[in-house]
Amino acid sequence: MRSILIIIVLSTIAQLFLPWWIIAPVTFGICWWLSQSSGRAFLEGFAGIALVWLVYALWLHIRTDGILTGRMSQLLFKADLPVVLLLLTPVIGGLVGGLAGMAGYQVRRALR
């Protein structure tokens, strides 16, 4: 739980100033430092980043009255499916965070 909160805070702050992919080094470093197993590292990275991206996607959806997500879903899926976009966004971010977290744990383990 502590790792997830640290991932949420640091990745949110980092994404304000840096590109989206900064989530990978942040999650890598935190899971390298704190995780206790490969599976937990993946779950902590996935949960931390997925929560950040879900909250941000919902915030944008509410702030634009669904116009942005509706148009993006039309662009990507050729259909008006903003709910699919809102569900797919945290999954993609979560996979990036989870794989980076698992890699961080595995690197630490390999260096021992």
Rank of each mutant, 00 (worst) to 15 (best):
I4K: 09
I4Q: 07
L5T: 00
I8F: 04
I8H: 02
V9M: 11
T12I: 01
I13H: 12
A14I: 00
F17W: 14
W21G: 09
I22N: 15
I22T: 11
I23K: 15
T27K: 07
T27C: 05
F28N: 04
F28C: 06
F28D: 01
G29Q: 04
G29K: 01
W32T: 08
W32E: 10
W32I: 07
W32D: 04
L34N: 02
S35H: 09
S37L: 03
S37C: 06
S38H: 11
A41Y: 09
F42E: 15
L43N: 00
E44D: 14
G45Y: 10
A47D: 12
V52E: 00
W53Y: 08
L54A: 03
A57Q: 03
L58F: 15
L58R: 03
L60M: 15
H61N: 11
R63F: 09
D65M: 10
D65V: 08
D65G: 15
D65W: 13
T69S: 15
G70N: 11
G70K: 06
R71P: 06
M72I: 06
L75N: 04
L76E: 03
K78D: 15
D80L: 05
P82F: 00
L86Y: 00
T89S: 15
V91M: 04
I92A: 11
G94V: 01
L95C: 11
V96I: 15
V96K: 07
G98Y: 06
L99F: 15
L99K: 13
L99Q: 12
M102K: 14
M102C: 13
Q106D: 13
R108Y: 12
R112M: 08
